[in-house]
Every structure is written in C-alpha cells, then in structure tokens.
Design a protein around this nucleic acid. Structure first.
Length: 547
DNA sequence: GCAGAGGGCGCC
DNA sequence: AAAAGGCGCCCTCTGC
C-alpha cells in the first residue's frame, strides 16, 4: 500500500488509502515503524525525509523518490516524447539539496518548505500514469530503472548514516610516518618542509612555494628545464636533481590536503568516515558524493578502513564491468564468450583477438572511451572484426552524439542534449561562408560529444547493473544475522564495488549474498542472454587487503 | 573578501 | 593539449 508523505513545519501530512492524516513531526518515526513492512512510501526526496527516520532507528523497505524519478522521466520525455507530460514544476527539477542538519528532537527542520501533500500526490500520479503507458512500449525497463533509482536514494541515506569503519589512530600514525610531525602553527609537517628545502636548493630558488604552479613553472624554466606544465607525467621525463624531491613533495602535499588531519577532523567521527552520498548525482546515473571525497578514497589510506573487533569487511568488485555490460547490451555472443573467465582481457587473448593482455585492455578502453590515436587506434580494427555487434553499439552511440542526438542506456536513462552553443557551432559550420576555423571547431565539438554519448550508454548501463546489484544485496542482507543477533551493514559503494561490514560469523553468508545479488542483477537486466559478471570477493580486516 | 577559473590529481 | 569517458576536492590566482 502507498503512503504519501509531505513534511510541514512542525507536523507531517500523510495520505494512507487516500485518507488524509496529520501527525506531529516527532511522532512520525514511531508511526512509520508500526506500518506493514511492505508499505511503499511516497515522498518528494529521500535525502530530505529519510535521515530523520534513520536517526530514530527506523528503516523502510521501499520508498518512491519523486525527485529522482522526475529527473529520469523528464529527460526521457524530452528526448523520446513520453505519452504523458509531467508537471513543469521547478519543485521537482531542482537539484538535490544538502541534507538538513540534525536539529535535535525535531524531525524536520522548521525551515523546510517542500511540496505540499497535494503536489506530492499529483506528481506521484503523473509519474505512475507515465510509467504505465511507457511499460506497454518498453516492457517495463523504465519502470525498473525508476524503481532501482528510488531504492538507491534510500541506500544513499543509509550509507550516510552508517559510515565506513575507520581507524583514526592507524591513519594518524600513517600521516606522521609519511608527512612527519604536524606543525603546531599550521605550517607544513616536518618531512614536507624538508622536501621543500631540497626543492628550493635544487632550483636555486630561495622562497619558492611549490604549491604554486605558476612559481614552480618559472623556477623550472629558470633552471633550464623545458616544461609546459608541472604535471607529474611531464616531470617524470626530466633528468634533474629536483625531480625526485618534487615528485615526492607533490605526493605528500596531495595526501596532506586531501586526507590529512583537517580531513580527519571534518569527516571522521566516532570511528566512522561519513560522506554525503548523492544517488543519481552524475548524468550517467552514477552516484556522486558531497564532501570528504568518498569516491576518491586513495589506495594509500585504505589501510585505515578497518573492521571493528569481531567484525570483518566483505569487499567485492565487478571485474571489467563496463565491457561485460557492453557485451550483454549488444547481445554479442563472441564477446560474451570472452567474458566466461574471471579476466575478460585474458579472454580476448585466449580467443586470439589481441596478442597480449595489456593490448587487450588498451583496445577495450579505447572502444568505450573513443580514443583513436596511437596504439589504441591501431588495435581497434581487431575488436571491430571480432565483436561487430558490441562495436556497433558504441559506434552507433558515438555517431548519434556527433549528430547532436540523445542516446539512452539499456533501461532508458537518456543523455542530455548538447548545449545551444554546440548546435549553433554545427549550424554555423554548415554555412557556405563558414571559415576553416569554425569548421574545425565544430568538427572537434562534434567528436567530443560523440565520445561522451559513446561512453554514456556503457557507463550508464553499468551504473544500472550496479544499482540492481546493490538493491538485491540490500534486501539479502536483511535476512542475515549473527549468532549474537547483530547484522551485517552495507557501508560503501563505489561504482562497481561494494563493502559490507559484517560480524565474522556472517562473512561467508554475506559473500554468498554478494555473488547471488550480482547474478540476479545480470538476469534482471539482460534476461537469459548469458554474460558472466565476474566478481572479486575478499574477506579482509582492512580495505587495503582487498584486490 | 569572495567567487569562479584553472592546475593538478585522486577514484572508477 | 596526454592523445580517452565520468566525477570531487584542494590549492592558487585573478578579477570584481
């Protein structure tokens, strides 16, 4: 049964069985907990309404996140002409806001002025009508996408609440070892400062600030080095005494600014690293994160992500997810055969398509990203010959993008249209009086957009697979329980990777659930067309031990 | 003093 | 301009 929820200032408006109800805000969690487990909650935005329930210890199985679904349907409508238009209300088009601060006993911040109950209901009905109509044409793919997206919206909030187990002492020791003791007056840590001294000496530049790309570039040139930037790859080419300390400094400076003591103080509390996950935050459907850099957790610091005593981490990633997804969506039997093993790239070698694993990797990435030059370009014809269907899918998406058309993922997420300036550039280049420069610029923009749409269909469909994987796993975890009654908790999600913090005696059950969920995700999306979605599953004490 | 762009680099 | 898709974050620099 649907229950529609619209938070007000100090109360919550509800519709159950079309019957209106009002509850004081503080009573909502208890009331929600009393409803049947199969209730489908309908609200504007899980990132606004769900955190307070979670703080009160209440989880829900299902909830429609109208804002997330609206974004999908609106774009699909614009591109393909969905049979029923949705309201053009700005309330549903606004990007997801930062979650509300916990203001204590009150459930919703008093400043909330979200859509009212009538507006929420109207939007929900419009979406349901739209999906009902679309389902007759697409067999339910878009409906599945919207459902998965909504579940993702719940999971994002659950991850926000739980956090990643993080060993602060371990991280602090690591920082002191690598960076040196921190400077009490806010200067550079000891070992970093020492490297700065060596850099200055090597370049004979007394006051050089190596954090300034401008200053550094000048100093390098003054020392007679032919460089156009201060990037790592370019510095590596040089033969000069400054290179070693400079590269070492850059490495440490990155660690210090991105994941140093300031980061620790801001993002790690009570032994948990908490970010703000944004489901559907990326055009392709991938998630984003806000604050703390949750999606860029460097390998260097993963040793501090550590299971608590009596617990363990089950870390799983889908091996070469995107090319496998491509094989499945293209129904390319030959490529699917290469997916049989745990290593797709080796599969290409074994089929005699490409000579080495390294070349196979370059070629496959080139096919999905659209690179054409150098080694990659030379290898592509071999792929095209071996896997014409798969290459047809990405090439088709690229050509469509070059023409300015929108493309869609397997489940129907639509790519954005190119900007007005893009269209104008293309039109301008068609004019008889168009200059060579204008033509060149337009051609370049066209190819750039083609690379985007090429990757969109693969990256976006991979995100759909991952979302289904995550949803199945979430469900499976609810029925796993330790002998002492504790439950495994999903703590991390990274595009094609998940981490579950589990009581030690549940580890095997969790690992099985992760594999089963992957299998079901593949079947849900691609039916009986068999592509193996191989997983690497590791049961470890700390994240750095995985892979 | 602040916002935005750009350099640079981390992740997939 | 590292030739290749998607991001976020920190730092510096610039312009208002």
């Amino acid at each position: 049964m649907d229950v529609v929820v619209a938070p007000g200032t100090d109360h919550v408006n509800l519709l159950r069985d079309d019957e209106p109800m009002t509850l004081p805000t503080a009573e909502l969690p208890g009331w929600v907990a009393d409803q049947p487990a199969d209730t489908r909650w309908v609200w504007a935005d899980s990132s606004q309404s769900y955190p307070a329930l979670l703080r009160a210890g209440v989880r829900v199985d299902r909830a429609v996140d109208l804002r997330l679904v609206h974004q999908i349907l609106r774009r699909a409508h614009g591109a393909a002409g969905l049979p029923i238009a949705l309201a053009e209300s700005s309330a549903w088009d606004a990007p997801a806001e930062a979650p509300l601060a916990d203001t204590g006993p009150t459930l919703f911040d008093s400043a909330v002025t979200g859509p009212g109950i009538a507006e929420v209901l109207a939007e929900h009905r419009a979406q349901q009508d739209t999906l009902a109509a679309v389902t007759r044409a697409d067999g339910g793919r878009l409906r599945l996408l919207c459902h998965a997206e909504s579940i993702g919206g719940l999971i994002a909030q659950e991850l926000n609440q739980v956090g990643v187990p993080f060993d602060v002492e371990h991280h602090d020791r690591q920082l002191r070892t690598l960076l040196g003791e921190p400077d009490p007056w806010g200067g550079r840590p000891v070992l970093m400062e020492r490297l700065v001294g060596r850099i200055r000496a090597a370049l004979d530049a007394r006051d050089l600030n190596p954090d300034s790309a401008v200053e550094l570039l000048k100093a390098l040139r003054r020392a007679g080095l032919q460089v156009s930037s201060t990037r790592q790859w370019e510095l590596e080419q040089l033969d000069h005494p400054v290179v070693e300390p400079l590269l070492a400094y850059k490495k440490l400076a990155r660690l210090h600014s991105a994941n140093g003591w300031a980061w620790l103080a801001s993002w790690v509390r009570e032994g948990r690293f908490r970010s703000d996950w944004v489901a559907g935050g990326v055009v392709t459907g991938r998630w984003a994160s806000r604050g703390g850099g949750a999606l860029q957790l460097p390998r260097q610091i993963r040793g501090a992500v550590r299971a608590e005593p009596g617990w363990t981490l089950v870390v799983a990633d889908a091996a070469q997810l995107e090319p496998r997804v491509l094989a499945a969506m293209a129904a390319d039997e030959q490529m699917a055969a290469a997916c049989q093993g745990a290593d797709l790239y080796q599969g290409l070698v074994d089929q005699g398509v490409i000579d080495t694993r390294e070349h196979a990797k370059i070629a496959v990435l080139a096919a999905m990203y659209g690179s054409t030059s150098g080694e990659a370009g030379a290898l592509l014809p071999r792929l095209a010959r071996a896997y014409p269907k798969a290459m047809g899918v990405v090439e088709g998406a690229a050509r469509a993008g070059e023409r300015g058309e929108q493309v869609t993922t397997w489940l129907g997420r639509t790519s954005p249209a190119p900007h007005d300036g893009w269209q104008e550039a293309q039109a301008g280049a068609q004019q008889p009086d168009a200059g060579v420069e204008a033509e060149r610029w337009a051609r370049r923009a066209s190819r750039d957009w083609g690379r985007f749409t090429r990757n969109f269909v693969v990256q976006g469909t991979a995100a759909e697979w991952a979302l289904c994987w995550l949803g199945h796993l979430r469900r499976a975890l609810t029925s796993i329980r330790s002998a002492d009654g504790t439950r495994p908790e999903l703590v991390y999600f990274l595009h094609d990777e998940v981490m579950v913090h589990a009581p030690v005696d549940c580890a095997e059950a969790v690992a099985d659930a992760v594999r089963e969920a992957a299998h079901r995700a593949g079947a849900l999306l691609f039916g009986c067309f068999g592509v193996e979605f191989a997983l690497n599953v590791a049961v470890v004490d700390s994240y750095d031990q995985a892979k």
